[in-house]
Design a protein around this nucleic acid. Structure first.
Length: 559
RNA sequence: GCGCCCGUAGCUCAGCAGGAUAGAGCAACGGUUUCCUAAACCGUGUGCCGGGGGUUCGAGUCCCUUCGGGCGCACCA
């Protein structure tokens, strides 16, 4: 276990025991032991750890919090925690613990011993599915898909690292209305390119990529499709185009560092009858009624403003119907938690989706929807406008081409999903410490460079147990202290679905490192100090590398 | 009209599951330095946390309300 958790647990037991004593001896009167926390104060002057136990008891015990704190302390058996050097009551009634910093001396051995696993949590025995991007296979990947990809994949990595059994899934919308229109658009382009004078469908996909796909079709099938009837022709064209688009999506996302465990086809849901089956099940449970020829789901029962159509008057199920079947299918696959990363433009879908889950008898809290707001691209200080030709501003593959996978992923992950984001292309490309991704990666490269210098001079990094950490100064101890936070940061990022915390953490740690680097020398005349600093460098390096890996950014050895 | 997200320093944004005196980067100003990786480092300050009300020992954080911005409200997905 990481040293910081050991201390927290110890303090937790210490306070709980003291509370038990105050109750048993009648010093304090209360029914329920409060759910106090052991936290790390923001301000160093407030100690290494603190607890709010006394303040939580104020009402029950009918006593001033500071007085309660004094009583709790009087019942503490500090002999159990020799690390604690001072306990005090402060502010409105906090109990602050000051701990001998030597506990941090254990940390490098833990970090180096765990290596790639430092920061990971114990196995949780919980299956979690993260579904993200799930872009329509009818066009190029856009910035919304890119942001969703970076966030979803990083979140999945964080959950994985925090000890969950994670599956990544892409839902392929290869059925329904938009595929219909896609087919008509492709067919129209095909016929046009073959010389026919026909109109392009009003709502059709007018982008250049459709034309490119059709050219590929012509290359393979020439004019052979002209003789077919429209139905047959569309089926063939759509099949070809979907394959091509999915290959494109898979490759682009792989270049973006994303690899899925499952590619799940909507079409399969329809063809296997699962969609109609789920509607029937809901009908039997009394959640479906017929009106004006369509079938409606009573989503108003679950807080929606109006009921939602599941089967249209033309007999075809809606996307929503398929999505209900899809989510039922997810739960049947045994996931304890199902997370969907959606664009904010889908937020209207959230409450009825949860409603449908509930109607089917599942706990809707097992479905978590992470909504993310829109992205605006900036180049040269101005917004990059939508291109009429391609229908997008910049596609994900173009973005990777322009700024690189690392910068793109870091920038998307750095911002909280629920704030609108401005993506500065110029900054992302910049090779300076103003560029946050460069700043963090550079810390890693610098450390590797120090190691190269050390080896060239004939020095090796000693094992963590061999060196004497007492020679380290406050700056180094502060860095170690921050490294001790890493497992907790990962855990919070995973639980609160906030991968941006990891990016922030890395910026912070890299900042501490750069600052240290700039006025202290690792390689120096004082051998014991050099040995300790080299080990410290290795703990920083491992932590940065592990953090970067979670957000899908490389940790270069040289820049 | 209804719903969701956002509103924090001049700008871009953090703020962990309410905690103590609200932070970072950039920009601005002042200084140091030419050093294991390259203009980097150190220091300086500004906040009606959009407004109002409430819950709480304690609110930037939770609830209500109001204003402003974005998005959504199809027998589309």
């Amino acid at each position: 276990m990481d040293p910081i958790q050991k201390l927290r647990d110890g303090l937790d037991r210490l306070v709980a025991a003291a509370l038990g004593q105050t109750q048993a001896t009648g010093l304090l009167r209360f029914e329920q032991q409060p759910e106090f926390v052991i936290e790390v104060p923001r301000d160093e002057g407030h100690g290494d750890f603190s607890t709010n136990a006394a303040m939580l008891l104020a009402r029950q015990a009918r006593m001033a919090p500071r007085q309660i704190a004094d009583i709790i302390i009087s019942q503490m058996d500090l002999g159990l925690m020799p690390e604690v050097v001072k306990v005090e009551v402060a502010g409105p009634g906090f109990i602050n613990f000051f701990v001998d910093q030597s506990w941090l001396y254990e940390l490098p051995a833990v970090v180096i011993g765990m290596g790639d696993r430092y920061g990971s949590g114990p196995h949780q025995n919980q299956k979690v599915q993260v579904e993200f991007v799930s872009a329509n296979p009818t066009g190029n990947l856009h910035m919304g898909n890119a942001r969703g990809g970076a966030i979803g994949d990083s979140l999945a990595n964080a959950l994985d690292f925090a000890g969950y059994d994670v599956e990544r899934e892409f839902y392929i919308n290869d059925a329904g209305n938009q595929i219909e229109i896609f087919g008509q658009s492709l067919e129209a382009r095909y016929l046009q390119l073959m010389g026919a004078k026909i109109d392009f469908p009003d709502e059709g996909y007018a982008g250049q990529d459709v034309v490119d796909t059709v050219k590929n079709i012509i290359r393979e099938h020439q004019d052979r499709l002209l003789q077919m009837d429209s139905l047959q022709r569309q089926a063939l064209i759509v099949d070809f185009a979907l394959k091509e688009k999915l290959t494109y999506i898979k490759n682009t996302l792989a270049n973006f560092g994303i690899n899925y465990d499952v590619w799940f086809s909507e079409k399969d849901l329809h063809e296997s009858g699962q969609v109609m089956k789920i509607i029937e099940e809901l009908r039997q449970r009394g959640y479906i009624y017929e009106e004006e020829g369509a079938w409606w789901f009573r989503s108003t029962l679950f807080g929606d403003e109006k009921d939602e159509v599941v089967v249209r008057a033309n007999g075809l199920p809606t996307y929503f119907a398929a999505d209900i079947a899809y989510h039922k299918n997810k739960f049947e696959r045994g996931f304890d938690k199902v997370i969907n990363v959606w664009g904010a433009d889908h937020h209207g879908h959230v409450s009825r989706m949860k409603g449908a889950i509930k109607a089917l008898g599942y706990d809707p809290d097992r479905l978590e929807i992470l909504l993310m707001q829109l992205v605006r691209l900036y180049r040269g200080g101005v917004v990059v406008r939508m291109s009429k030709r391609t229908g997008t501003t910049v596609s994900l593959d173009e973005l990777i081409e322009e700024v690189g996978k690392d910068a793109a992923r870091f920038f998307f992950v750095m911002r909280s999903p629920d704030s609108q984001m401005d993506f500065d292309l110029d900054l992302a490309k910049q090779r300076s410490q103003d560029n946050p991704v460069y700043y963090v990666q550079y810390a890693h490269a610098r450390i590797q460079s120090i190691f190269r210098q050390a080896r060239a001079a004939g020095f090796e990094i000693k094992s963590a147990a061999e060196v004497d950490y007492k020679v380290l100064g406050p700056e180094e101890m502060q860095i170690l202290r921050r490294i001790a936070d890493f497992p907790q940061e990962i855990s919070v990022a995973a639980h609160t679905m906030a991968p941006q915390r990891i990016a922030r953490y890395l910026l912070d740690l890299a900042g501490l490192f750069h600052s240290f680097y700039n006025h202290q020398r690792v390689l120096n005349e004082n051998r014991p100090l050099q040995d300790a600093r080299l080990v410290l460098m290795e703990t920083i390096r491992i932590t940065i590398k592990n953090g970067l890996r979670i957000i899908g950014v490389s940790a270069p050895d040289q820049m």
